[in-house]
Simulated assay, not measured.
Amino acid sequence: MATISAAPTPATVPVAIPLRQILPWAAFGAVLAVVLLYFVGTEQGITSVVSGETVHEFVHDGRHLLGFPCH
């Protein structure tokens, strides 16, 4: 019978990403999240940026899913 020996594989070491490279993407993600939260949560009534019911109807189901009352 032949024996099979497996060669050890080198361990991979994670590379640290500098904060300078992450910070712009984190800021972009935060701004995008706030804008999406505004449009889903409060885009109607006196704080409306877009006139009419188009945005409200587009995000209507997401609004209820996230627990925002609208009617």
Results as ranks from 00 to 15, higher is better:
33 A>Y: 10
46 I>H: 01
21 Q>E: 14
2 A>I: 07
30 A>V: 13
16 A>H: 08
19 L>M: 12
21 Q>N: 12
21 Q>R: 14
16 A>S: 10
33 A>G: 07
17 I>S: 11
35 V>T: 01
11 A>P: 08
27 A>S: 02
25 W>E: 05
21 Q>Y: 07
38 Y>Q: 07
37 L>D: 04
40 V>I: 15
18 P>E: 09
11 A>I: 10
8 P>Q: 10
33 A>K: 07
26 A>P: 01
10 P>S: 13
19 L>N: 09
8 P>F: 02
31 V>K: 03
46 I>Y: 00
40 V>S: 09
3 T>D: 08
13 V>P: 00
12 T>H: 09
15 V>H: 15
44 Q>R: 10
3 T>F: 06
35 V>L: 07
32 L>V: 04
13 V>S: 13
31 V>E: 06
20 R>L: 12
4 I>V: 14
42 T>K: 06
27 A>I: 15
30 A>P: 00
40 V>P: 05
30 A>W: 10
20 R>K: 13
30 A>K: 04
45 G>V: 14
26 A>E: 02
32 L>P: 05
14 P>F: 06
34 V>R: 03
31 V>R: 02
18 P>R: 09
25 W>N: 05
18 P>H: 08
41 G>L: 06
12 T>I: 11
37 L>R: 01
22 I>K: 15
17 I>A: 12
13 V>R: 14
23 L>K: 05
15 V>M: 11
38 Y>L: 12
31 V>S: 08
19 L>W: 11
23 L>T: 12
27 A>G: 04
41 G>A: 15
27 A>C: 02
24 P>A: 03
21 Q>W: 06
22 I>H: 08
37 L>K: 01
24 P>F: 02
45 G>E: 03
39 F>H: 02
10 P>I: 08
35 V>Q: 04
25 W>H: 12
32 L>G: 02
31 V>D: 01
14 P>H: 10
31 V>I: 15
38 Y>G: 07
39 F>C: 00
15 V>A: 14
6 A>M: 14
38 Y>I: 06
29 G>I: 01
40 V>R: 09
38 Y>R: 12
28 F>M: 08
